[in-house]
Amino acid sequence: MSASLQSTLKGFCNNRVWRSIFRRAPARTNRTRSIAIFGNLFLHALPVKVREKSLRVRATYYLGSFSFFLFVVLTLTGIMLMFYYHPAAPKAYNDMKDLRFVVSEGIFLRNLHRLAAQAMVLAVFWHMFHVFYRGGYKPPHEFNWVIGVVLLLLTLFLSYTGYLLPWDQLAFWAITVGTNIISYIPILGKPTRFLLLGGHEIGENALLRFFVLHCVILPLAMIVLIALHFWRIQKDGGLTIRESDERK
């Protein structure tokens, strides 16, 4: 950068407002870089340094990141959809029609959400297979694998609860079949079905419960476990592999 540009920028940043928002100067040394990462709310869970090898596409195909990205997309589009959606029995279907025909970009919004959901299921499966292929479950990463499996189940359950929300024939019968299968589990099956549906039949209660599950309970669980999943990766040494297993 030219000297004049640099001095202009310095002058621009040299005021009280700027300094109260951005407390530290840009980091130029390794020490200040570490401090910048550690001291940042959003970044302190992430590692300061990563191995160059782990940045290559073929190391992970960025599948985990992709899944997380899709999760963020789903959350944001989901929140925008929530502005138009009433989880009440006939209104839900009418709202989906409104999204389709009336709301500007309603189709786009809904399809983004839907496609991201399907892509996320694919991505997490692919991620799981790839981690297995690369041996990422081996000690000390065993518990992380377990967390990953739980995340997979959460993803699937999120998908399932979201399926009911349009309240059309497809949704209704899919949930009928699914909850009937659940009711065949010995001992716990019937109470679980009753709990899920809020009754014996699929009606307004079921819709509301699935909505709360889909928008509050499961996403919160997901966020906590994703955070733990990332934390575990970082604390176990990052996206690296042991020297003995390294492929040349």
């Binding site: 009418n94 029609k97 409104d98 389709r100 025909f101 009336v102 059309d168």
Partner: peptide, 17 residues
């Protein structure tokens, strides 16, 4: 017919939805 629709085919004919 489908009163919700603002597209010709969706309003008048049998469609997927």
């Amino acid at each position: 017919g489908q009163g919700f629709a603002t597209e010709v085919k969706e309003a008048h004919q049998t469609t997927l939805a």
